[in-house]
Amino acid sequence: MSIPATAAPASDTPQPGAQTAGSLPDAVTATDLAPAARPLAQATPAIAVLVPCYNEEASIAKVVRDFRAALPGCVVYVYDNNSKDRTIEEARAAGAVVRCETLQGKGNVVRRMFADVEADIYVMVDGDDTYDAGKAPELVRKLVDEQLDMVNGARVADWETYRRGHRFGNVLLTTLVTMVFGKRTQDMLSGYRVFSRRFVKSFPVLAGGFEIETELVVHALEMRMPIGEVETPYKDRAPGSVSKLSTFRDGFRILWMIGKLIKEERPMQFFGIASLLLAVLSVGIAVPLFMEYFATGLVPRFPTAVLATGLGLLSFLFLTAGLILDTVTRGRREMKRLKYLEIPAPAFDPAVIGTPR
C-alpha cells in the first residue's frame, strides 16, 4: 500500500476554469514557478516510518505504537526478513503495514522498502526499540526547516550500552570514512535516520547486509547533499531481544564495503596510492642494480632487474587506470545528480510536523 500525496482541502481548490485572487491561470501550474515563488504544495507531508525486522517479537509492537504516537498520521511499514518468531503478528496487531522480503540482509530489505513505499518523508529505524521515538518529530522538523535530504540520529548512550567490539568498530569505521569522504557525521552506523523523497528515490541501493548504513552516508557525502544530525538517546534492547549484528563478520563486511566505495567513488586516490607504492618498490629494487652497474658495468642479478621493470610497468598501468576511472566516476556522479534534480524539492509548513493529517 503506497501513501498518496496529501492534497489541499477540497474547499480551497478552485474549480476548473475559475480563477480567484492570487490563483494561477489554467495553463500554468505550481511546478512551473521558480522555487522561491512556489507556494506550499502540501500543508502536511505524508510520512512513512520504515522498520526492517528480523526476529523482533519482543520489541516490534512497542516500536510501532511509539512511532504512531510520536508522528500522528504517519504510516508504519514493517518489512519482515524471514523471521522465525511472531514478529509479523505482533507488528500487524500494533497497527503496522506488514510486508516481507525473502532476500536475507538489511540492505536487501532497505532496497525493497525504498522501491515500494511512496511518501514525502521517510523515517527509518531498527525494530529493536533501542532508539527514542520521541525524537522523531525533531528529526523530521529539522529536515523540513533546513531543506535537508538526510538527518542522522547520532546515538548518545552510556559506554555500557554498547558492546565493546561494536563501540570500537563504530569509531574506527566512522574515522576511516571521515578521512576519505569528509567529516559530516559523528555516528555513521546509526540505524535511525530521516530522508527526503529526493534521497530515497535517487539512491541505488547496492549493499546486501548491515553495510547499508555506510553506503547511505557515502552516497550523501559524494552527492554533496544537505544533511544534518540530531543527538538521540540510545538504550539497551528489550528483554528477549537479541542483536543480529556480528562484531567481526559484519565489521569486516563494512570494512570491505568502505574499500569498494573508495575504489568506485575515489578511483584516483585508490589506484594512485597503489601506483605510488609499486613505483617506490620498483625504485627500491632497482637502485642497488644501477649502483652495481655503474661500478662494474655488469647486471649480475638479471631476474631482479626484470622484477623492477615489471613493477614499474604495473605502477604506470595503475596510474592510467585511476585516470580513466576517475573520468568515468565523474560521469556517473553527474548522472546521479541529474536524477536527483528531477525530483522537486518539497515545500511544507514546519508547524504541522507531528500533527494528525
Rank of each mutant, 00 (worst) to 15 (best):
S2W: 11
P35S: 11
L103I: 10
P16V: 07
D32Q: 09
K201R: 15
D149W: 00
Q19R: 10
L33F: 03
D126P: 05
R330N: 09
L338A: 15
Q147I: 02
L176P: 01
A133R: 05
V109Q: 07
G107H: 03
V177M: 08
D12T: 14
K263C: 09
F271P: 02
A10D: 12
Q186F: 08
K183E: 15
F168D: 11
F181S: 00
S243Q: 04
C100I: 12
R164A: 14
V171R: 11
W159D: 14
V194R: 01
A93L: 10
A308D: 05
L189C: 09
V76D: 07
A286H: 04
R99E: 15
L216K: 03
A69D: 05
F181T: 04
N55D: 15
M150S: 03
D128P: 01
T29P: 03
I3T: 12
I343M: 06
T6S: 14
Y131C: 12
S315G: 13
T320W: 14
Q269G: 07
L172Y: 13
F199S: 01
S83K: 05
I3P: 01
F318D: 02
L278N: 04
R68W: 00
Y293M: 13
Y131I: 10
R266H: 06
F195L: 10
A69E: 14
L341A: 10
R111W: 05
L317I: 15
D187P: 04
M124R: 07
A154H: 05
F318L: 09
R249T: 14
V205L: 08
W159M: 03
S243C: 14
R155L: 06
I60H: 00
T29F: 13
L289A: 04
V51D: 00
R164F: 15
P16A: 09
R333M: 11
N81S: 10
K142M: 14
Q15W: 05
V287C: 08
A286C: 07
M188V: 15
P350Q: 06
L148K: 05
V280P: 01
I273G: 01
R164I: 14
N170R: 08
P204A: 12
Y192D: 00
V280T: 15
N81W: 00
L314E: 11
L278M: 11
P35R: 05
E334L: 12
P39Y: 05
E138P: 06
P72H: 05
V125H: 06
H219L: 00
E264T: 09
K135D: 13
I258D: 07
I262R: 03
S59H: 06
S282Q: 04
I121E: 02
D145N: 12
A43H: 06
E101W: 04
F270Q: 01
T304K: 08
I227T: 15
K336T: 07
Q19D: 06
G22W: 07
D149G: 00
Q15N: 08
A94W: 03
P204I: 11
V171A: 09
G127H: 05
F270I: 04
G240H: 00
A91F: 06
T296W: 04
Y340A: 08
V180D: 06
V205F: 09
S282C: 12
E213I: 00
L261S: 00
L278A: 13
N108P: 08
D126M: 04
L245V: 15
P204H: 06
V123S: 02
G251N: 03
D132A: 15
T175V: 01
P52C: 10
L216A: 02
M1V: 07
R253F: 08
I285H: 04
P346E: 03
